[in-house]
């Protein structure tokens, strides 16, 4: 992942579906993508084409002209995309946490140093041995 601080652009459902398709097949043109997604959704190849065009503008796909049609591939791997999404989501985490909408198992903002973790572990082990001794 690059150190880029810019947020991922917002994606509509269709753009996301197109991107998912590209991750599955690695590379596709408008017609192929339409065959895979368009029929089921009842949309035209043009709509798929403009979704790909928008993804291209947003920098999420790369394209290359092969004989008269563009062939598209995802610019980020699925994992890198997910990671970027998570970073964006983490930007909201504080706000969501304050509204009560998000709560994590351990607070990863507050740093707990290794020494106090060692102390806690010792405390737990002592307790465990006490219980086993009972």
């Amino acid at each position: 992942m690059s150190g880029s601080k810019s947020r991922l652009p917002r994606l509509g459902d269709l753009e996301l579906a197109v991107l998912e398709h590209l991750w599955r097949v690695e590379e596709a043109d408008v017609q192929e993508t339409h065959r895979a997604l368009g029929r089921r959704r009842g949309i035209t190849a043009n709509t798929i084409g403009s979704a790909l065009e928008r993804l291209n503008k947003k920098g999420l796909v790369r394209r290359e002209k092969v004989s008269h049609a563009y062939r598209y591939r995802a610019a980020l791997t699925k994992e890198a995309f997910a990671a970027r999404r998570m970073i964006d989501a983490a930007g909201d985490a504080k706000m969501l946490g304050e509204a009560g909408l998000l709560s994590a198992f351990v607070d990863l903002v507050a740093d707990v140093d290794a020494a106090s973790l060692d102390r806690l572990e010792a405390l737990i082990e002592k307790k465990r041995r006490e219980q086993e001794g009972e």
Partner: peptide, 9 residues
């Protein structure tokens, strides 16, 4: 990347 708030270990 997974920085959420809400607890005190």
């Amino acid at each position: 990347a997974l920085a959420f708030s809400g607890s005190d270990v």
